[in-house]
Write a protein that binds this DNA or RNA. Structure first.
Ligand SMILES: [Mn+2]
Ligand SMILES: [Mn+2]
Ligand SMILES: [Zn+2]
Ligand SMILES: [Zn+2]
Lengths: 150, 150
DNA sequence: CATCAAAATGAAAATGAAAATCATTTCTGT
DNA sequence: ACAGAAATGATTTTCATTTTCATTTTGATG
């Protein structure tokens, strides 16, 4: 939060001329969420995060967790991805990794490195977009499941 | 389904020696699902697909729709992606496009062309994987929402 | 410090897509 | 035709997420 304040010589008072909310404007709750997400190497679901917060003594209602996760996404501070099961996982936006997932058994392995790290994202598409993050996931059959299929 | 059949001269009977189930082994239901998905340029959710099938006179229970969509995915014939809302959209696997999605209003625009079309997917990761499809989505703020935020 | 309005919170209820159940139907090989 | 196996679908269940709304917190102002 940035405030532009004018001092009134006549009355010796101060007046807020303008209030600018910047991207770095994080509430206490949001800070707690971010802090908790950073504590774990893995992504966390909303439910897991809620549980962990309580264990850490940071009491917080479930609605508040979900509400503020959405805000953090819109602020470009975290990103989310859906598991095939429907759960949504959250992670700080600066962690750039992706996964291989078996469509049969759900086994997931993290890929180190991002294949599109230095790929040009088509300009004609992104011109109008304030890009926040990307999601890239590969799906297929793990060795076990591939063999079992025959 | 491929059958190897031996004719027994002695008894005048036929015997199935071996049955090979191949990838192209599609049941009638699965064929109907694939056919219906191909009818629409856009991806369809399970619910939408179910509705469309009924309208097309291809009566089918909802369970059967979901069951066979999963099988089609495992066979490498269709792929799926989750909307931020949680709905899952299905589309034939050979359609290679991706989306930009606004994290604020949900507006989605299709990107023509695939940025990773000819990118090498890290070998050390995919060696053990029978790759079926990939998912790539960009998230950010559309022009409207970006401006409205300030 | 007191006041008041606006914003945030959270307990509880509602939502809804997807999964599970299970009685019934269809298929398949002999 | 017969018997076991597989598939189907009406229905119920699940459960992560959203919505509701009464209460609490915040923050500007005098
Ligand atoms: Mn990446
Ligand atoms: Mn692609
Ligand atoms: Zn597997
Ligand atoms: Zn938008």
């Amino acid at each position: 939060m940035i405030r532009m304040i004018r001092y009134d010589q006549k009355y010796g008072t101060k007046k807020i001329l303008k209030t600018m909310v910047t991207k770095s404007d994080i509430t206490k709750r949001q800070e707690q969420l971010l802090e908790e997400l950073n504590k774990y190497e893995d992504e966390l679901s909303g439910q897991e995060l809620h549980r962990q917060l309580i264990e850490s003594g940071k009491l917080m209602g479930l609605s508040t967790v979900y509400r503020n996760l959405q805000i953090l996404i819109k602020q470009g501070l975290i990103r989310s991805r859906h598991l095939p099961t429907g759960e949504v996982l959250y992670t700080p936006v600066d962690r750039d990794f992706h996964h291989l997932t078996c469509v049969q058994c759900g086994e997931t392995s993290k890929m180190e490195g991002c294949p599109i790290k230095d790929i040009h994202t088509p300009k004609e598409n992104t011109r109008k977009f304030q890009l926040l993050f990307h999601q890239l996931e590969y799906f297929g059959l793990c060795q076990n499941c591939y063999q079992a299929q025959n």
